[in-house]
Design a protein around this nucleic acid. Structure first.
Lengths: 154, 154
DNA sequence: GAAATTTATTTCAAGCATAAAATATCAAGT
DNA sequence: ACTTGATATTTTATGCTTGAAATAAATTTC
């Protein structure tokens, strides 16, 4: 691939894995900070709300609270709070589930669908900009390697 | 390098960069969740506290609050709160700065140094475990590529 | 059919995180 | 020497996040 080869380090592998983790933290942090600020300035919104709307956009029929929680890998209580705030803005609505009075289904409202489309367009531009340093080959390399992190532990 | 080549996608680059960002999110999320739980169970501590102690461990003479904030890429107010809790546990201490009565220097106490050494040993093992799927070549590839994310925006 | 167990969601307490305001202090300008 | 502007940290309001408890409802067991 196109990443320039470096002399192999004499550090133990565990130290190099630690270093990778620090790089991942820093890379993630930088992009996250950028996206948060852009969402706040351009859409008066937040990353967690964007994430919830993104999940719901992919499931227009709606998702149960626990499904949302599972997909976003956040606690049920957190999802309750974020959904509450989105509902108060009229961007999502809670719908009762047939046959299970415990459960609640959440879906985007028409206003939410419009708002999300707008945010998603900008979001893709911002991410594209932050990751513009990579060629297609490098993107494939990174995606393939990062996929492996989840494989043996999930 | 060793990452298997895949057929080039016909998706536009912006979509592939979005996909990379989602992989980065997922990879980071999984490791973060694991480390948080392990720190809580083994040391009754948290990732932000660990991060603060880690920064202070590298500067045994201490860091000013704003330096800590800059290194960790978090707000000054957040650092104030985390340091307050570490200080209440006797793990760090605040020291006045000569010549500047506004500033405050924070450093690890002897107890904090001991505690951090213990945590850091475990932390390295946990990270090593989570990233064990990568060979040395792959680690170098990932680190080199991820370094590029910060380069053009910082 | 009733009791026990499990499940879905909300509530709660605590920690973390931001952005902005407040406060005290330092440095620069006049 | 005084005024103005900049800086360091804390405080504040708000949002997010966890893990656990509380509550209501469904399922399983007997």
């Amino acid at each position: 691939m196109s990443a320039p080869a470096k002399p192999l380090s004499n550090k133990p592998l565990s130290k190099q894995r630690l270093r990778l983790w620090l790089r991942m933290l820093s890379a993630h942090r930088g992009i996250e900070m950028h996206l948060r600020e852009q969402l706040r300035l351009s859409h008066d919104s937040t990353l967690p709300r964007f994430d919830v709307m993104s999940a719901l956009d992919r499931y227009r029929d709606g998702l149960r609270m626990s499904d949302l929680s599972a997909r976003l890998k956040v606690s049920n209580g957190n999802v309750t709070g974020i959904v509450e705030r989105l509902a108060s803005e009229g961007l999502v609505e809670r719908v009762a589930v047939d046959g299970d009075r415990r459960a609640m289904c959440v879906r985007l409202t028409p206003a939410g669908i419009d708002r999300f489309a707008d945010m998603a367009r900008n979001h893709e531009t911002w991410v594209n900009d932050r990751l513009s340093a990579f060629t297609e080959d490098e993107l494939i390399t990174l995606i393939t390697l990062l996929d492996r992190i989840g494989e043996i532990h999930e």
